[in-house]
Design a protein around this nucleic acid. Structure first.
Lengths: 175, 175
DNA sequence: CACAGATAGATTGTACACAACTAAATTTTG
DNA sequence: CAAAATTTAGTTGTGTACAATCTATCTGTG
């Protein structure tokens, strides 16, 4: 099948929006429309980012989640699995195999902490640290692709960060 | 490990932002900071949505991507796999197994078109159509959780839709 | 009609992502 | 200090998600 998936539905096979912005009266039952869902817009943007990053990162031998992990490690040099999970919002079920793959490609090393044998410290190898230089061109490429000005990006990022915090809070009623 | 992942890093183990909004001078090399990446904010929001929807949809016997597929089908009653892929921005490698699972749970039926034996039409079963009634409460629950006003949501959704279109365009230089 | 090319889905392989569970180590408590 | 509770990673199972590839079918051209 078509490998370029379904980019830019310029010729909507399924008519993308019934009226684009009917923000006003939503009296009856239009709340279950796909194009009206904020969650879908977020989901679609996330996958579009992934598709754009994929070929760039492939040259560096990284997947997109691995790139996010490297961003955290380039900043902190060394983190425990829990700290990395906290930064990336990922749990051990995702991180354990991801870090194992990154260790097998020589970007990081994992070693049990001597002071607390429960924790595993993930550290950059020289090779992993050196990769930062090759990654420097990535952000500018992505920035250009967004077609947005830096302040617009900052605004959007802030809105999303706040949204995420609100969703988290709603998801943890008690705590 | 902790199953509640790493929600609300209220007590930043890895200090979430070095200065929150240093939108101004980014002269040197701060472009590779995790918290500065719009892509990460989008990615995090997407996963936060998924976590919030999960328990709600679980009661309906749906996963989040399956819910999105149902939204499209509740609107159109019946779609080919390609049309559904176009609406959801998913390819056949994802949709084939997903639809097979939905068929096994009795929500949809799949049948080869007589007019074009290559295409497969996905249609709601009575059970799948009836599920819409039980799903009606979902959007309001999510809306409340966002803590946003409807017009704020519309604005954010529009910004994300535009961003997605820009990323798609950049990803398809020629076409 | 023959046949090259295009199209529709399915399949295979790799990589997230999370729930549920397990094992091991540490901390808290009585 | 010993038992209970907590914390830290890892493992297993299910479900996306996409690239690459495959088969079947259809379409266009001569």
């Amino acid at each position: 099948m078509d490998r370029s998936v379904n980019r830019a539905p310029t010729e909507g096979t399924v008519d993308p929006a019934h009226s684009e912005e009917g923000v006003a009266a939503i009296g009856h039952e239009e709340t279950l429309h796909l194009q009206r869902q904020l969650c879908f817009a977020v989901h679609a943007a996330s996958r579009a980012f992934d598709a754009l990053y994929r070929p760039l990162l492939s040259e560096l031998g990284l997947t997109y989640p691995q790139y996010l992990a490297m961003l955290a490690l380039w900043e902190h040099r060394s983190l425990t699995v829990t700290e990395l999970g906290s930064a990336l919002r990922l749990d051990s079920g995702t991180l354990s195999p991801l870090l194992k793959r990154m260790e097998s490609t020589g970007l990081v090393v994992r070693e049990r902490s001597r002071s607390d044998e429960r924790s595993v410290r993930v550290s950059l190898t020289p090779s992993g640290a050196a990769l930062k230089e090759r990654a420097r061109t990535v952000p500018a490429t992505i920035l250009t692709a967004t077609g947005m000005a830096p302040d617009e990006i900052a605004t959007l990022r802030a809105a999303l960060t706040q949204l995420t915090a609100a969703l988290d809070a709603a998801d943890t009623p008690g705590a």
